[in-house]
Each structure stands twice: as structure tokens, then as C-alpha cells.
Write a protein that binds this DNA or RNA. Structure first.
Length: 196
DNA sequence: CTGGTCAAAGTGGCTC
DNA sequence: GAGCCACTTTGACCAG
């Protein structure tokens, strides 16, 4: 097994020039001031010799590429059109952005992961809200049960059993006295469950 | 200086 | 074996 990964050619030795400032004056908001460095790090062409250099001797610290805003924008555009690339598209994009196909591939992988994470977070938020709603509904139903039990203890207070109805499918008892509860319970359920 | 965050890249397992 | 994904590492940057 190789000591270094196949794509260690991006261990860009050329950027660590003594005296070179990696923090030029910021021209953008948060995260700004990276543009110059990014350009230098991304600069092509790289050669096979560079790769050989990386494989020889002791491993230098991996230098991190930062994409330029333009590169990111084009990648985002491309991602919007398609979340995956075929080898030809990857090659073309790499050529256009002056990056290696591997970098395009990695960017798309990470972008898909971020996209999925965002989706999961949104679903999590939705489920939290739903849980809150169900908890609230559960409390109301418990109170209703207590009320019904109280009525059973004192049957004289129950005017007629016909005011209680049982849903044949979910076997839920509803009373004519609490239509709002039935309505709110219905509201809390997702559409699929409601179609009933 | 330190800890947190973000994103590029490495790694290993899985699928086709 | 290539491509993808989940997980992890790592470097750059920023705020306190």
C-alpha cells in the first residue's frame, strides 16, 4: 500500500513560499480575504512530476485548496442541473474550472452530503413540531378521559350514551361535547393519517 | 491563543 | 474496478 493516497498531488508545495502572505486584505464579508490564496492554490497545470515529488521523501503537510467564488458558483450551477456527473461532464467541468476531475468529484460528493444533511435537519424540525403537537393532543385526550371517567362515576350526569360515538376504523371514542378536540386531533395528524 | 465552524480531502465499505 | 456514501481528518478562518 502506498504511503500517500493517489491524489496526494494536491499537496501543493508551491504555495508555501516564505514571505507570502496567505491573508490578503479582505474584499468580502465573512470568510473573505481568501481569494488570492485560492487562486494560487488552484493554479494549473500540475504535472506528474509534482505527484512524484509528493510520493518521494517524507510527506509534507497537506495544503488545503479553497475554491474561488467563481468556481463555487459554477459548481453550484452545475449541481442545480444535476446532482451527479458522468465522467465526460466531470472532465469538462474540471477543464473549465482548471481543477482536477478528482476535485470535481469530491466537491459533488461533499455537496450531496451537505444537501442531505440540510434535508435531514428540515425533517428533524418538522418531526419535532409534530411531536410537540402530538404531545399537546395527548394531554388533551388524557384530560378528556379523566372527564369521561368522572361522568361514569356519576352516571346521573350523563344525559345519553348516544352523545358518544365510536369511529369504526380507529376505534376512537368521540363525544358531541368536544367537537373541537376531534378537530384539533385531526389537524395534528399528517395528511396520510387523516385520510380516514 | 483557543475553540468552533466550514469545507476540501482521505479512507473504507458497499453496490452494481 | 469504478463510483458512491458515511465517516473522519485536516487546514483555513473567525470570534471571543
Amino acid at each position: 500500500m502506498a504511503i500517500l493516497p493517489e491524489n496526494s498531488s494536491n499537496l501543493d508545495l508551491t504555495i508555501s513560499v516564505p514571505g507570502f502572505s496567505s491573508s490578503p486584505p479582505s474584499d468580502e464579508g465573512s470568510g473573505g480575504g481568501r481569494e488570492q490564496l485560492k487562486l494560487d492554490m488552484n493554479r494549473l497545470p500540475w504535472s506528474e512530476d509534482d505527484e512524484e515529488l509528493c510520493h518521494g521523501g517524507s510527506a509534507p503537510p497537506r495544503k488545503k485548496l479553497r475554491l474561488t467564488r467563481e468556481q463555487s458558483r459554477l459548481l453550484e450551477d452545475s449541481f442545480r442541473q444535476n446532482h451527479t456527473l458522468n465522467p465526460k461532464q466531470k472532465e469538462a467541468l474540471a477543464k473549465h474550472l482548471m481543477l482536477r476531475p478528482r476535485q470535481i468529484e469530491v466537491w459533488f460528493q461533499n455537496r450531496r452530503a451537505r444537501s442531505k444533511l440540510k434535508q435531514t435537519e428540515m425533517e428533524c424540525e418538522y418531526l419535532k413540531r409534530w411531536f410537540g403537537s402530538l404531545t399537546e393532543q395527548n394531554h388533551r385526550l388524557h384530560r378528556e378521559v379523566e372527564e369521561l371517567r368522572a361522568m361514569k362515576v356519576a352516571p346521573s350526569t350523563v344525559t345519553s350514551t348516544s352523545s358518544l360515538t365510536m369511529c369504526p376504523r380507529c376505534e376512537r371514542v368521540t363525544t358531541a361535547a368536544s367537537p373541537s378536540m376531534a378537530a384539533s386531533a385531526k389537524k395534528a395528524l399528517p395528511l396520510k393519517e387523516r385520510e380516514h
